[in-house]
Design a protein around this nucleic acid. Structure first.
Lengths: 259, 259
DNA sequence: TAGTGGTCTAGACCACAGG
DNA sequence: CTGTGGTCTAGACCACTAA
């Protein structure tokens, strides 16, 4: 009985099994990409029922150690490359090189970047975005939604929102590729001189859609970052809403000391 | 059979039940703090077995909507206070008021702050901290570990590390309460003029210990923040390692645009 | 003690992937 | 087709909590 094993160790059987497997993964007995023994095999090996094995594997999944695929099996997760989002990525000098920040960052780390444009076009302002932009809810905005990849693995999904009145004066913004230096370069070329960026960072569990879009395990955490670009006049001309796979990013910020 | 219901909706029964309950919570039918119907009651109401109900409740738990207590029942989580860590919280002018940043932030939001000092004393430098401080691994450091509360609920655990050579010259740092303005004020009084703070932000799932310390549900995400305090001379005099319950914080950063 | 959530079983059927 | 993970049941026993 399970209760017997429980008395022996003071720990649920499914956690013992999960720890056993986790040790094998961390020690390299089960290498990244390798198939984890099937449920029925683990059932036999430990003499437990399927439900117990499933609970054990669920533990490993939320710990980010394995990913499960219906009909195929469970596999040890290969650790994805970590990208570092530094706060000086918005320097104008970087834009002059003509490359977007993510390209430089990713290639510099020896990885292959990729972007997929999901949508570029008009959209009614959602409440939270409207708040940031200082416009009415439901106002017409330009939305630019794209998904970023590193070595073919999706890591990030970002949507930029701009008031339509600003966007229509900058024709490049309606194209999939806004050109060298990205949309901030285009905005500054059209007289919107940027003074600062304000970022707010949250962390939470991924929604079902995000789990799919970013190929995450259920229960995996994401970083939700909202950045507002503010001009010299104090106007917010763009808001960028980004959802990142938490285990693939580290955010860096430099805060100058002041009085 | 479950398969029948599955065909009807294309959705697993346990998710239907979870969604039903989630709707009742969001619509206010089940208010914060209220007891969720017991497993046996839900079993009867939906005509499913205990395992199915448990999976549904597990969903609500990882979604942060509910907390379960062995032997007592499940309760709708009362929305926790959100503290806003603005990047200007380290201004010297705030320190002159004599209050620590967390006190001002928490009281300003209408909540009752609390601190519990867990440890103040010497410690050997862990590798990552040693890297930040630019000292050898295993060097003698002063460690100051404390847990922060909001309205009695633990929200954050932070450890400050300082090279022992610096700490021993500032006697207040060895006391539980370092005095008005916190350790940054003491450091500046002793000639360490701070030029900037560098923060690195990660998000991940809580470990077992963190789950206990911060009273989180298993599988809940945390924000892991490491801040280095840098002097005019470019020396790192303090590193603060903080783990926060992700759903209780929003981090704010202002990034000045520059060339 | 009664009621609650936590663990476990033995067996069933389903949906998916691959040979 | 076989083997895999995903869902579900009916029933059992345990551990914790509160009356």
């Amino acid at each position: 009985m399970g209760s017997e094993a429980l008395r022996h160790s003071g720990k649920p059987r499914y956690l013992q099994i999960a720890d056993d497997l986790a040790d094998q993964i961390r020690s390299g007995v089960l290498a990244p990409g390798v198939k984890v023994p099937s449920e029925s095999e683990v059932m036999g090996r430990y003499g437990v029922s399927q439900g117990t094995v499933r609970k054990a594997v669920a533990e490993l999944r939320t710990a980010g150690l394995v990913e499960t695929h219906h009909g195929r099996g469970s596999y040890v997760r290969s650790l994805p490359p970590v990208r570092r989002k530094s706060s000086d990525r918005f320097r104008r000098s970087h834009r002059k090189a003509g490359k977007a920040a993510y390209l430089v960052e990713t290639e510099g780390a020896g990885h292959t970047p990729g972007v997929h444009v999901l949508y570029v076009g008009p959209m009614d302002a959602p409440t939270d975005i409207a708040d940031h932009l200082g416009v009415a809810e439901g106002s017409k905005l330009l939305a630019r939604r794209r998904r970023y990849f590193v070595d073919g693995v999706p890591t990030e999904e970002a949507t930029s929102y701009l008031p339509w009145s600003i966007a229509e004066a900058v024709p490049e913004l309606l194209r999939d590729n806004p050109g060298g230096g990205g949309i901030y370069a285009r905005l500054e070329e059209h007289g919107h001189h940027l003074a600062e960026y304000v970022e707010t960072v949250r962390a939470r569990l991924a929604t079902k859609q995000e789990t799919t879009a970013l190929q995450l395990s259920p229960g995996a955490p994401v970083i939700h970052l909202v950045r507002a670009a503010v001009t010299d006049e104090g106007n917010v001309v763009e808001v960028c809403d980004t959802v990142m796979a938490a285990d693939r990013f580290v955010l860096d910020y430099r805060i100058p000391a002041c009085d």
